[in-house]
Design a protein around this nucleic acid. Structure first.
Lengths: 225, 225
DNA sequence: GATTCACTTCGGCGGGCGCCGAACAATCCA
DNA sequence: TGGATTGTTCGGCGCCCGCCGAAGTGAATC
């Protein structure tokens, strides 16, 4: 077969084939920008080591960087890169049971609800997606219906030509699909801004606030997940 | 973040992060079983080298092997593994333009039609999928409609609980979805068996035969792609 | 039973990769 | 201006990995 494709595949995989770089990428799955130092701490390596890794990831196109003062902010390059990682995580399947109390509770809250690059995932994400499907706002495969388009317009969402308004993203803890794409990102940002969803701890875990529970019930008739 | 997930990701990526192993996997994307020797020739490495690579891929769960006499047959472990590779190839995007005549023609026929693990892809695969969608046999997102279920039943297809009857697979040359899953695999096998689709050369490339053109026109009203 | 064939195991070679600490550069703050 | 903070570059260390050829195993063939 075409050796060129094999080389590209091997090169791409090589970028991910390192414990430290993998930890960077997993951390960056929250969609936020991290500084080089934060990532070094996160992965437990020296700043110099992290710096070299980041250069490789940026050169490889997986990350984009923004220099600001004496900080180097780095972020997933875009939805394509997030999708790539999601696909790999979905293949690896649900994380194995954790063995320390701290890890267990962190794991629990992560399963309960989290951000997945720029949209909601975990039980919360799946529950919202299910309810929207029941309401006829989404099709079974997470496409936005006409009714759904009107609903999103009511929230202030305006679809663009550049990015698909909605797509299904396979949830790696629930093994079910949840809403992703531009509409999913908008919804997530909207709920965070309204304070209906709030971050838990420093990671990607999020939870529904009491106000959010009520608000979503009004908006969709969603039961507490 | 959970270091365990990072380690698993890095380990998995490490399996793919080698030119020779990547060539093996790409070759095995045709869904057939290859012998160790064939793969060694394909990748241009010594048999001993290939043997070691195959052991790693089997241990890593990407491949399954079957010993038969003095041959070691090896094959993609299943649809999950094929999906994983499809996802990576889709990220890499359409292959860059080839620069030798032989490569160009091989590339052309591959784009025209090919098997993708166990179903049809390329222009042919997308064209068949599109026509089936137009006929109301599939939804926009490659789910089988009730009408489609009846149509497939007429072909002798019997859905099982173990595998989803249909799903969308992103075509890495067309950048469009085509039909995959159990129904896609059945259709591909069916067309090959009837002689409506035939392999071109030794790779994954396939083309529609005159009989197939006529037969599909009867069955679906499909124009020549 | 001897030969051939497909594959595996082993030893050894070379190269690349990940890691660190030390020195350096750039920026912010007092 | 001087010192603290942040990140980068460089040299060097050690390890792992991919590769090969030679020798070995086991099955098929004659």
């Amino acid at each position: 077969m075409a050796p060129v494709a094999a080389d590209e595949l091997a090169t791409l995989a090589g970028l991910l084939a390192d414990r430290s770089r993998a930890r960077f990428l997993l951390a960056l799955m929250d969609g936020r920008a991290w500084t080089a130092g934060e990532l070094a701490t996160e992965a437990g390596v020296a700043p110099s080591t992290a710096s070299e890794h980041l250069t490789r990831l940026v050169d490889g196109g997986l990350l984009v960087e923004r220099r600001q003062g004496r900080h180097r902010y780095v972020q997933l390059a875009g939805p394509d890169q997030a999708r790539l990682l999601e696909g790999l995580l979905a293949y690896l399947g649900p994380a194995k049971p954790a063995n320390t109390l701290r890890a267990v509770t962190a794991d629990q809250s992560l399963r309960q609800g989290r951000t997945c690059y720029d949209h909601l995932a975990g039980r919360l994400g799946v529950a919202i997606t299910d309810t929207m499907t029941d309401c006829g706002l989404l099709t079974d495969s997470c496409a936005v219906t006409d009714e759904g388009l009107a609903w999103f317009a009511g929230l202030g969402f305006r679809p663009t030509a550049r990015r698909a308004p909605a797509r299904a993203c396979l949830d790696w803890t629930e093994r079910r699909s949840h809403l992703a794409g531009a509409a999913g990102a908008y919804l997530c940002a909207h709920l965070l801004e309204r304070g209906w969803v709030r971050g838990v701890g420093s990671g990607r875990a999020v939870r529904l606030t009491p106000a959010g529970e009520e608000g979503l019930r009004d908006l969709l008739g969603v039961p507490t997940p």
